[in-house]
């Protein structure tokens, strides 16, 4: 066998993975190891592979991912805090041929936007809601979110979340799965290659269901926040596996009948 040289392999015909062309070349402002970057890239790959780039409209939230429109080369609109599903409803009703999604964090979707989320899912609008749940308010400095785990410390629950005074974590995916308007509700993760590949499959299903006008698709991504959890990215992913997954078990919660 000839001497191994990586330069012999690095040729266009041997390419197996490259960054999606739907992503722009801007460097993302997210902290090292943040799940938002992986979720953005997976979404961009699905948009590219399904050839949706020219007919996708994304609605961005308020939170860390507020500047998402800088990173995805598609039409995007910023919504007021928590109001992304309401804006997506309007966009989808006016332009039913477009693929419409909202991308929201837990402070946006589960706190200030609870009413919009629940009523949009109840009406069964044909949109995709991508919910990134890291159990904390990331952008504003690590305050307690509705999805913060019991006993988890944050800047507004310094002794840990206490169910008696602060309530228990809101399981949004389980909540909206009960509503008749949702057709597909699933919970995925982005910290391992297998998790990312499963999320990609789920996103492709959501595209298919939206093309068939089957109702609201709700995909929750259990993610991390290394900065506000005060851990390294690798330790945060491990902590997430040990603590977040028992509270937010991964897998499909609701699938359309006959699937």
């Amino acid at each position: 066998m000839a001497e191994f040289n990586p330069k012999d392999i690095i040729k266009p015909e041997n390419l197996v993975y490259r960054k999606s062309k739907v992503l722009t070349d801007n460097v993302m402002h997210y902290c090292p190891g943040c799940g938002h970057g992986t979720a953005h890239r997976t979404l961009a790959e699905v948009i590219e592979e399904e050839e949706l780039q020219s007919r996708t409209i994304g609605i961005t939230p308020v939170g860390c991912s507020v500047l998402m429109y800088n990173y995805l080369d598609i039409d995007m609109q910023e919504a007021a805090h928590g109001r992304a599903p309401a804006l997506a409803t309007a966009v989808k009703r006016l332009m039913p041929d477009r693929f419409v999604f909202t991308y929201q964090g837990d402070g946006d979707l589960a706190a200030i936007g609870t009413a919009e989320t629940i009523h949009t899912c109840n009406r069964g609008e044909n949109i995709l809601i991508l919910f990134v749940n890291n159990g904390i308010y990331g952008m504003t400095g690590g305050q307690m979110a509705p999805t913060t785990l019991l006993g988890m410390k944050s800047s507004t629950s310094p002794y840990g979340r206490d169910a008696a005074t602060m309530g228990s974590p809101v399981k949004m995916a389980d909540l909206v799965a009960l509503l008749p308007g949702t057709c597909y509700v699933t919970r995925q993760s982005v910290h391992t290659a297998a998790g990312v590949r499963k999320l990609k499959k789920a996103l492709k299903k959501a595209v298919e269901y939206q093309n068939k006008n089957m109702g609201t698709c709700f995909i929750e991504v259990v993610s991390n926040c290394p900065s506000n959890w005060k851990m390294t990215p690798v330790a945060a992913n491990k902590w997430m596996e040990e603590n977040m997954f028992p509270a937010y078990p991964l897998g499909d919660i609701k699938v359309p009948a006959g699937e």
């Binding site: 012999d8 392999i9 690095i10 993302m28 970057g37 890239r41 982005v190 990312v196």
Partner: peptide, 13 residues
């Protein structure tokens, strides 16, 4: 696939 910043390109033969 797991890179949050999409900085890795992979080739295989």
């Amino acid at each position: 696939v797991v890179c949050p910043d999409g900085v890795i390109t992979v080739y295989k033969m």
